[in-house]
């Protein structure tokens, strides 16, 4: 294990959210997965920062050239309120309320009280939600768009949505932006159960969804606690791997740099990354 602190990168051009993707005419999909114990919010905060102004102050010292309005960043959450991200991004030096290119789409606050009220009509509710999301994305001009979406698994686990329907909505949404990052919990066997075989089992739909999602992905980022047990100075491990559809087939010349890091996050949001 190397003791030298590392900068986190995803692509061989030393980037996180690569400029090649934002300026392309194609659409890229990434999956950010995590389990109980290792929440990805610290990473998401830095990626939001990277999308908004090109820097990633807490996780990559090289990406220090600020550039305003780098991309329109949309954050769709089924799990957190806007406040959560505004509060946490302060540690990244971001005042999200003041970024005109940051758009938080709240699918959390009224999810089951307004949008999905009657489960017999839930697929209509889901379509409505995605309709709203697409509308908001389209309402903003330009093509340099990055969309984050987290907590979709709740729709599947509550039986509000079916995997194929959700994947269809995701496909449409992906085409409206350059880079779609889907954030999902994947605890096994609570959420991921590849041998589930009945729709009575809520894990079936979400497992089906995730397998199919991974088959479309260009970049996979996985966070989990250390397999070897808890350590006081290590929070967990972060693995970057290439997806089933190589990114070079969509953006020629771009390549995922596969790597495994171990990382440490403190309550003051200081983040350290090391090669495994």
């Amino acid at each position: 294990m190397s003791n030298q602190q590392q900068d986190l990168i995803f692509f061989q051009d030393n980037s996180l959210l690569s400029e090649e993707i934002i300026t392309s005419e194609s659409s890229v999909l990434s999956v950010i997965s995590h389990v109980q114990g290792t929440s990805p919010s610290w990473l998401l905060n830095s990626l939001i920062e990277n999308g908004l102004n090109g820097t990633a102050t807490l996780i990559n010292n090289d990406l220090n050239k600020k550039r305003s309005n780098r991309a329109e960043v949309f954050f769709v959450s089924f799990l957190h309120s806007k406040d959560f991200y505004i509060q946490n991004c302060k540690k990244n030096g971001l005042d999200l309320g003041h970024f005109t290119n940051f758009h938080f789409i709240d699918c959390f606050t009224n999810l089951f009280t307004k949008y999905i009220k009657d489960f017999k009509e839930s697929s209509r509710g889901v379509s409505e939600i995605f309709g709203q999301i697409e509308k908001q994305v389209e309402a903003v001009g330009g093509t340099r768009k990055i969309v984050f979406i987290e907590g979709l698994e709740l729709l599947l686990l509550s039986n509000a949505g079916k995997a194929n329907d959700l994947l269809s909505h995701i496909l449409k949404l992906n085409r409206k932006c350059r880079h779609l990052l889907v954030v999902s919990a994947q605890d096994s066997p609570q959420i991921v159960k590849l041998h589930a075989n009945t729709t009575q089992d809520p894990a079936f739909e979400v497992s089906d969804f995730l397998v199919k999602l991974y088959h479309r992905s260009q970049l996979n980022i996985n966070l989990q606690p250390l397999a070897t047990g808890r350590a006081n100075d290590i929070t967990g491990s972060l693995t970057i791997s290439r997806g089933s559809v190589p990114v070079e087939s969509i953006i020629p010349g771009l390549r995922v740099v596969e790597n495994e890091y171990i990382y440490h996050v403190t309550k003051d949001a200081s983040i350290k990354l090391f090669y495994r």
């Binding site: 096994s188 996985n222 989990q224 693995t239 791997s241």
Partner: peptide
């Protein structure tokens, strides 16, 4: 793979 974890440098994809 059962847990949807993808090892790197193992020749996958």
């Amino acid at each position: 793979i059962e847990r949807l974890e993808f090892p790197i440098r193992a020749g996958l994809n």
